[in-house]
Design a protein around this nucleic acid. Structure first.
Length: 568
RNA sequence: CGGGGUAUAGCGCAGCCUGGUAGCGCAACUGCUUUGGGAGCAGUGGGUCGGGAGUUCAAAUCUCUCUACCCCGACCA
């Protein structure tokens, strides 16, 4: 591709509304432009990378025996009513109606559609297992779209759905998809991690997420330093401590703590370590309010807490008026002693003695508090987030925490949809049997942003070769001034093109600095510079995007040199 | 949806407080010079100052209102 024939819309300045690096670089490189909140146009440059990712995903899915289909983006309400999700899904589902006033939605996912298709097409167990996928635009009316393409409302997703006669068959396909995903992310050239995950509201159990590792990732993942264990922090169980509770040494005393609300303030004020303080959070329960008690230095895991039978799901904090009315003080002075509502205590608090907590009176806390003596032995639960250094739940090694961007998620749906929508087949005894289902998603457009988050420097994007929009940047220095230089550049361009290598030939009449800056910003992995100086010596210059320095290459060897580079 | 902000040329911003000719840098266009790391000089084009209403002789500027967008929370590929 000649730059003069391409739309290279690079920006020198960073648009103010781009917060994260991938969003900034995608705008600056001219890959995307925003149309409205959460809606983006893909420019020619961005689309090249998007399509490369798409094709790698497609190849691997095909290799795994999945069949590609393409389902409508607009879906009739009836199917969603049949599965029960028309009511459940909430405002994230974009509901629309046609000219006959019939209800539709813009599909955020396609379980209903594929289940409807397959219940009509597949009648016999002999046709199972079967796995269908599509790469298609989804719409989710996110409360707050942000980070550019990372959390857009309209986005490109690969979604696959498998159908089975029984759990064993589902497990086999699930395992195959797990391996396929590993292969996909390896092909893309990204550092990633597969982790045990919460299955959320899609339903079913047994689920893994795939995270691209990046410091800016929104998710925290915990992995064992020894064994294979890795899980989303949301999911990680914390084992009860085996430590003995220390001896009680202090009397319970009420102390004045005016305007001390947070644990940090309190611990400063009283000169007590945060891990000797206890914080009490008030949330909505199934019957009235419930208190959750954690050690001061621990953080609440909302997913685990919401799974407790006493606690409402999703987790909802009580507002300050409710707390005032029920407990009689403000947030910041609450404690478990003599609390009239149910109290659930995290394992981490069980072995504290002589601890500090709120007195349930504004501006007062209690010190020297002890279980059994000052309040009943606690009802223990597991509601805190794991931290680096906690033991691995599988008993093998300690946990480390890393940040990740969720780019894939695989689920075992079981019969949630097939049962609701009566997707049955005849088994070998001629008996009607509900199919068992799995589903497997990859955020294709999000992967573009995730790849950038993981691979960039001050100058711009550093694409893994497999998904770079172009493989080689060909930069002639002041080509308009030298016929000789032009001939060499055109010759190299033609030869590389003939080999099927994607070359971006900067034939603009621009100064060298601009060409260097643009090719680095858009992240092309390999760069060839042709200058008069080099030609005098029969050389051109090569530099890899991650290389410190450029190196001279004899003109006669350029094509072979590049071919070699692309192999490695 | 709750809390906080922003809206002036394609992009980044000033002007608003204290009402009176709409400005700067980058980008774009033309010419000359320059040419191995985002050039210099000269010139040119581009604005319903987010929309509506009000106050005023006069509104980018003051008041009211609507809208869009951004940031913090819950959701998720």
């Amino acid at each position: 591709m000649r730059v003069s024939q391409f739309l290279l819309s690079t920006l020198k300045e960073v648009p103010t509304d781009a917060e994260i690096i991938s969003h900034q670089l995608m705008l600056r490189a001219g890959m995307i432009r925003k149309l409205a909140s959460g809606l983006y146009t893909w420019l020619p440059l961005g689309l090249r990378t998007l399509q490369k990712i798409e094709n790698i995903v497609r190849d691997e899915m095909n290799k795994a025996g999945a069949l590609e289909v393409l389902m409508p983006a607009v879906q009739p309400a009836e199917l969603w009513q049949e599965s029960g999700r028309w009511e459940q899904y909430g405002p994230e589902l974009l509901r629309i109606s046609d000219r006959h006033n019939r209800d539709f939605c813009f599909g955020p996912t396609h379980e209903e559609i594929i289940t409807n298709l397959i219940r009509n097409e597949i009648r016999s167990y002999k046709q199972l297992p079967a796995n269908f996928y599509q790469i298609q635009t989804k719409f989710r009316d996110e409360i707050r779209p942000r980070f550019g393409i990372m959390r857009a409302r309209e986005f490109l997703m690969k979604d696959a759905y498998s159908f089975h006669l029984n759990q064993e068959s589902l497990q086999a396909t699930y395992d195959l998809m797990y391996e396929t995903y590993i292969s996909i992310f390896n092909h893309l050239g990204l550092k990633f991690r597969a982790v045990i995950a919460d299955s959320g509201n899609i339903g079913g159990n047994n689920s893994h997420e795939f995270h691209v590792l990046a410091d800016s990732g929104e998710d925290a993942i915990a992995y064992s330093t020894n064994g294979d264990y890795a899980a989303n922090v949301e999911m990680v169980a914390v084992l009860p401590s085996t430590e003995q509770r220390p001896q009680t040494t202090a009397e319970m005393v009420t102390v004045e703590t005016p305007n001390q609300h947070t644990i940090e303030e309190l611990s400063q004020f009283l000169q007590v370590a945060p891990n000797q303080c206890v914080k009490t959070l008030i949330v909505q329960g199934e019957e009235g309010l419930v208190a959750l008690v954690l050690r001061g230095d621990h953080t609440l895991n909302a997913i685990k807490a919401a799974k407790l039978p006493q606690v409402s799901s999703p987790l909802t904090f009580a507002d300050s008026d409710q707390i005032k009315a029920t407990i009689g003080c403000d947030i910041g002075s609450i404690g478990p002693v003599d609390l009239e509502i149910p109290v659930l205590v995290d394992n981490g608090v069980a072995n504290l003695a002589d601890f500090v907590c709120g007195a349930n009176k504004d501006g007062q806390h209690l010190t020297g508090v002890n279980w059994k003596r000052d309040l009943p032995e606690p009802q223990l639960v597991d509601i805190r987030n794991v931290e680096a250094g906690d033991p691995s739940p599988d008993g093998d090694g300690k946990l480390e925490i890393a940040r990740g961007i969720e780019v894939g998620h695989i689920f075992q749906l079981g019969t949630k949809y097939s049962h609701a929508m009566q997707a049955n087949v005849l088994d070998e005894n001629g008996k009607n049997t509900t199919m068992t289902m799995g589903c497997y998603g990859i955020g294709v457009s999000r992967l573009v942003a995730a790849a950038i988050e993981q691979n960039h420097d001050q100058r711009g994007i550093i694409w893994p070769q497999a998904i770079a929009p172009f493989t080689v940047a060909l930069l002639p220095m002041n080509m308009h001034k030298s016929q000789r230089l032009r001939q060499v550049a055109e010759d190299i361009y033609t030869k590389l093109q003939a080999l099927g290598i994607e070359v971006l030939f900067d034939d603009r009449k621009e100064r060298p600095g601009i060409m260097f800056a643009d090719s680095e910003l858009i992240g092309i992995p390999h760069r060839l510079v042709i200058g008069e100086r080099g030609l005098d010596k029969g050389e051109v210059e090569y530099k890899g995007r991650r290389d410190e320095k450029a190196q001279p290459i004899p003109l006669d060897n350029v094509i072979e040199f590049i071919q070699d580079k692309l192999k490695s």
